[in-house]
């Protein structure tokens, strides 16, 4: 399959990019192209215009903003994996980045592109939900912040408007004694996850969050998990009940996701 015909623009400023999105309805944004490329080839999307934001300098910037590190949307997974981007999480982001797909994908794929694509099985969505990140977005008129829990409105759907651009992500720094666990069940190295479990224990900030990802929608957030608070093993029965409470009904899905979270908790507490 080859893409249907489209126009391609690579503006060098954010305002130009936003102007294009405003003026051409249905225009698609490309950053690393690791998801959009195949979708174009399969003709699942046939935009009139593709706006390449990878040449806008601030889109690749990484800034320290006190409590947060702010990543431009075009920071690549590889830059995070390699430690070329500042990391206020004590290596958590680098660890997650290193497990995304294959190195070739990580070299081009971007943190903002992954979030904007909103594939439930993607790593950043689950990992950054556990960390309590905030998305920054802009259109021609204003900038706003969206809590990551509110980003995804459905599979491959987000709260980002059609003339709006996901510009970056603000990741809160972790306390020195925070503990983190991440467990991904993949049928094959580099493949999208069948289930993701993330556990964060950050007593200084009072955060005891479990996240279950690679579901059929947004990641499931389980706050104030007793096991993370008490530093004890998770109660398998309780986790399964909570997943059912979030609408999961296939015993296989419940099993896989519960185990992923159990193992993430184990890792965090180990």
């Amino acid at each position: 399959m080859k893409p249907a015909r489209f126009d391609y623009m690579a503006p060098s400023t954010l305002s130009e990019a936003l102007g294009l999105l405003e003026s051409v309805p249905g225009a698609k944004v490309i950053a690393g192209g690791q998801s959009l490329g195949p979708m174009l080839n399969l003709r699942l999307v046939q935009p009139q215009l593709i706006v390449d934001i990878s040449r806008i300098p601030e889109m690749s910037a990484v800034e320290d903003d006190g409590d947060c590190t702010v990543y431009g949307a075009c920071v690549t997974h590889a830059a995070i994996e390699d430690g070329r981007a500042a990391d206020g999480t004590g290596g958590v982001l680098a660890r997650v980045a290193s497990g995304i797909a294959y190195r070739a994908v990580r070299t081009r794929g971007t943190i903002g592109g992954s979030l904007a694509h909103a594939d439930p099985a993607a790593d950043w969505l689950s990992a950054l939900t556990a960390l309590g990140a905030e998305i920054t977005a802009a259109d021609g008129k204003q900038e706003r912040r969206i809590p990551i829990e509110a980003l995804m409105t459905g599979v491959f759907e987000t709260a980002i408007g059609s003339a709006e651009l996901l510009t970056g992500v603000r990741v809160p720094k972790l306390s020195a004694n925070a503990r983190f666990g991440y467990y991904k069940i993949c049928r094959k190295t580099g493949e999208f996850a069948e289930a993701i479990g993330v556990a964060l224990q950050d007593p200084e900030r009072g955060r005891y969050r479990g996240v279950v990802g690679a579901t059929e929608g947004s990641p499931i957030v389980l706050d104030d998990l007793p096991s993370l608070k008490a530093g004890t093993e998770a109660d398998p029965g309780e986790l399964r009940e909570r997943l059912k409470g979030h609408g999961m009904d296939d015993p296989y899905e419940i099993q896989l996701h519960a185990v992923a979270l159990e193992r993430a908790i184990q890792e965090a507490l180990a």
Partner: peptide, 13 residues
């Protein structure tokens, strides 16, 4: 319809 659904083993498998 793609290799993300039709899984063939890779080097690590």
């Amino acid at each position: 319809s793609t290799f993300s659904d039709y899984i063939v083993p890779g080097p690590t498998e």
